[in-house]
Amino acid sequence: MFRSANKIVSMILIVIAIFYLYLAFQIPAFATGVFTASTMPKAAGFLLILLSIFLFFIKEGESEEDQEKRREAGQHVFYLGGVAVMILLYITLLEPVGFILASTVFIFLCSLFMGYRRHIVNAVTSVVFPLSLYLVFTQLLNISLPPGILPL
C-alpha cells in the first residue's frame, strides 16, 4: 500500500470537497440576507478540506488488525462485487418483473452464490418468504408492491 491509507483517503476527500464547493458556489441566492442557501454548504465544504488536510498529516499508526481487515475485503472482492451486481439487477427488475418473482430469484441465487448448498431448503425459502411478505403487505397492510408479470 501507499505510505498510509489516510493520505489516499485525504486526497479523495479533498477532491470530493472541491466538487461539492464548486456546486455550492452555483447555488443561486434568493434571500437578501447574509445567510443564504449556500452558507452552510460552503462552510461544510471548507471544513471538509481543512479536516482532510489534518488527516493527511496525522501520524496515526494503523493497527495490524485494520490492515488485515482491508486485505481480507480485497480477497473477497469478487463476492462483494457479485452481490452488488445481483442487487443492481434485483432493483432494476423489481418493477417490471414484480416483487415476488424478482425476490425469489434473488434470494435463491444470492444464497447459492454465498455458498448455501441445501438447494431444496433454499428453493422453499426463496418462494415462501417473498410470497408471504407480498401477501402481508398487499392484503394486511394495504401497501401495494409491484405485482409484475405474475397474474395476481
Binding site: 418493477e95 434473488f106 454465498m114 401497501i143
Partner: peptide, 30 residues
C-alpha cells in the same frame, strides 16, 4: 449466513421501497 445475507438485503430493499415506492431510493441504499 448465506441465507441471512439474502434475506436481510431483501428486507432492507422492500422497507425502503415502501417509503417512497421508487427504485431510485434503492440505488441510493446500495
Amino acid at each position: 449466513r448465506p441465507m441471512l445475507i439474502s434475506l436481510v438485503i431483501m428486507f432492507s430493499m422492500i422497507g425502503v421501497y415502501s417509503i417512497s415506492f421508487s427504485t431510485f431510493d434503492l440505488y441510493l441504499l446500495l
